[in-house]
Write a protein that binds this DNA or RNA. Structure first.
Lengths: 254, 254
DNA sequence: GTTGACTTTGACGTTACGTAAAGGTGTATA
DNA sequence: TATACACCTTTACGTAACGTCAAAGTCAAC
């Protein structure tokens, strides 16, 4: 399939001027020029434009995009995976912002108070950078959880301290579970510790704890696809593993 | 609390030049000018800057932001709610992009094929607009679910058709449940229909269906805070209601 | 009283295009 | 065959939201 500027433009949702500009700065040159001087784009160019728009969406400068897509060692699949990572980060940033808006609405309605510093949380990339320095890459996963928990805290009307404890516990569960999964033994010390942390976490939400309900929840982690996806995101099989660990922990594994 | 340019700048994560620019275009003027000509900002200015950055984050031009925040009839709380709506939309757009990246990775690995048109899905606001026209506002909720299901489909290695069926079913469950909740009767026709649709949905993921497991899952929707938050998002109490409906449906309500 | 970190007002530079001007091309229709 | 009209071209200036100097005044501390 061959495209002129307008055809490619409307396909990709961008202006013809943009395509000419991309030609000008050498980021996307047409496959060939027709006898009358028209720009003609082909399959390769379509794919490349897709790449360019991906990165543009992320806020990467065209200059940098140029480096990325023209690098001879350009590994498409790998670049996409990195790209995906960045999109996920951006979504987390967005979640923070949304949480901030929720808070601000509550503030406007006089339900809570906010410090000046808090008012800018979510805007600042800085915050995330700081966390990255402290905890390294895995903080991203945590932040995802954090955001989820934050929204839960809202539903649960938790105090700030309670919420922090709960978040810390949830992180510990995730970490311990990941370590435990590496051992492969659901009856092992780590797996049992994960189950115990999970119990502690649950007591924040349950009025009374029972082994049966805990075991049931473990089973559910395998039965409900949403949960399976949640736990298996990093390591497929984690949900199943966790279920086994909880069944052993609660003594319901007969 | 009073702030100079740098103090306010570092608080909000922006440059001093930006603050001076905002003064210049009349979007954020300092509370007063010190005897030596320094810009001094107060509480009102902090709050206003927060508003400005909110809208900036959304991609609103400073010109439009000016109209928004200087309007005498400016309803802060309402503006925030609209803002929140837009952020949620933006997140959905992001989810689309992520889905697209996932697809493209699959493409790169030769697992699927994609049309040129599909390659630009997620970039184009147009698509979302089209859907809005067709289905109205509630599409947003659906899209949220859709995205969730999409990621699950990936985990489950579904075919495209299966995925579509599952998504449709999930939407029906949500809709029927919402209608049923309005009746207030978990034993009523609508609630029982929701439970039945939920069963159908589950059979896509479960190898064998049992009333006990289904009832257990219903109970879990109340016990696990993440699920409660999920179902209660639109209407608090929905999770509890759904649990009751499922217990009645499965005959396990004794 | 002199650093050094702060502030001020210009003023020009930058990115990623938008927009208009002036003109050539392709093809359907009168 | 003319002409209408939607397409294409290059050239060039305009723009938004700042970044980045430069030159000069201010403030607190040693």
């Amino acid at each position: 399939m061959e495209y002129t500027v307008q055809k490619l433009g409307s396909l990709a949702g961008i202006s013809t001027r943009t395509l000419r500009y991309y030609d000008e700065i050498g980021i996307l040159k047409p496959a060939r020029i027709s006898s009358s001087g028209y720009r003609i784009y082909g399959q390769k160019e379509v794919d490349r434009l897709q790449q360019i728009l991906f990165y543009r969406e992320l806020g990467v400068s065209l200059d940098n995009i140029k480096d990325i897509v023209t690098a001879p060692s350009f590994d498409g699949a790998n670049a996409l995976r990195e790209h995906r990572e960045k999109l996920l980060e951006k979504r987390e940033q967005l979640d923070l912002l949304i949480a901030n808006v929720d808070k601000t609405i509550a503030l406007a309605e006089g339900r809570i108070k906010m410090s000046d510093k808090e008012k800018f949380e979510g805007f600042k990339q800085k915050m995330i950078d700081d966390n990255e320095k402290k905890y390294g890459k895995e903080i991203r996963e945590k932040y995802g959880n954090d955001t989820v928990e934050k929204s839960n805290a809202k539903v649960m009307n938790m105090t700030k301290e309670q919420h922090e404890e709960v978040t810390a516990l949830a992180n510990q569960v995730t970490e311990t579970l990941a370590q435990a999964f590496a051992t492969g033994d659901p009856a092992g010390e780590l797996a049992q510790k994960a189950a115990d942390l999970h119990k502690q976490w649950l007591t924040y939400f349950w009025n009374e704890y029972s082994k049966e309900a805990h075991a049931g929840l473990g089973q559910m982690y395998v039965d409900d696809p949403r949960f399976t996806a949640y736990y298996d995101e990093k390591q497929p099989g984690t949900a199943e593993f966790f279920k086994d660990a909880i069944l052993i922990y609660t003594g319901m594994n007969k």
